[in-house]
Design a protein around this nucleic acid. Structure first.
Lengths: 143, 143
DNA sequence: ATCGCACGATTACAAATGTAATCAACGCGC
DNA sequence: GCGCGTTGATTACATTTGTAATCGTGCGAT
């Protein structure tokens, strides 16, 4: 029995990944994402409450940001009675990577070492940081 | 003989540093800065030429960016006959630090180690990168 | 059945940003 | 001396972002 013809799954997935990777989240929007990454799903008023601790935003400001994120496809909404519960679609991981890769590429030629060197010169690295780095490097060497 | 009364130099310097640190340079503007950081001073047409290799910008676009940087105080201009030669005022170092500190603070709780860990999971670190990191860590430990 | 309120949706608006075209002045070659 | 081209200055305009206010609608209490 011939398999059902199907569009190439890999390609479709890749499209999704690409579109998520290229999703551009503004600074303000990322604050909303962080709240949802921390706990999900959450209703609008919960998000507002969570954000009220760090940002001096009106409720409607947060609503706007939620809507922009919906439009961008970074989050989605599940109906829950009269209201919605919001889930992140964009994964924090993916976003983190794109953000840091972007910075590294633009400022440090894509290499991690120069960034670390930069901080070792300009920013106090604590004893703990150094120990942690040592651990990481040791582990990397083993593989 | 009493010293000439003077305004507090330290404070004035600090003001300057602060203002430079808080200077906000857009992505497009930073491309112009990179050109000037690479070689300085340069005339507008040299900057245009240098940028033509990486960006598909019209001459007037670059001129606009140069003007915005002047207005922001990130660069200055020295007259040279009929034209100007531009110098960076904002130091690459300072900018680099502010950019990377910002990213680290927002995404990794201000710690370098988690960023490195992130890359060690998600991005191939080459043998060389690892060796380099090891060197850096070793040197850090010595102090 | 009605009124108010809780929520999401729509509209608002200034500033920053990306990307240019056009204007104006002035020195150089003819 | 004069027109032209080079170069900086001014103006333009759409989009994104920050930050809200207002609108519309349907559920729940009375």
């Amino acid at each position: 029995m011939p398999q059902k013809p199907r569009t190439n799954v890999k390609t479709a997935l890749q499209r999704t990944v690409d579109s998520l990777a290229s999703l551009t989240i503004s600074e303000a929007e990322s604050a909303v994402m962080e709240v949802l990454w921390h706990r999900q799903p959450q209703a609008a008023d919960e998000i507002v409450a969570a954000l009220s601790k760090e940002r001096d935003w009106q409720e409607s400001t947060v609503k706007t940001l939620i809507n922009r994120l919906l439009k961008k496809g970074a989050i989605d909404a599940e109906q829950d009675g009269r209201r919605y519960l919001y889930h992140p679609i964009l994964k924090r991981d993916v976003w983190l990577r794109s953000q840091s890769t972007n910075l590294l590429d633009r400022l440090f030629g894509g290499r991690v070492a120069p960034l670390v060197a930069h901080f070792s010169e300009h920013r106090k690295l604590t004893r703990d940081d150094i120990a942690e780095l040592k651990r990481i490097v040791a582990k990397l060497e083993k593989n």
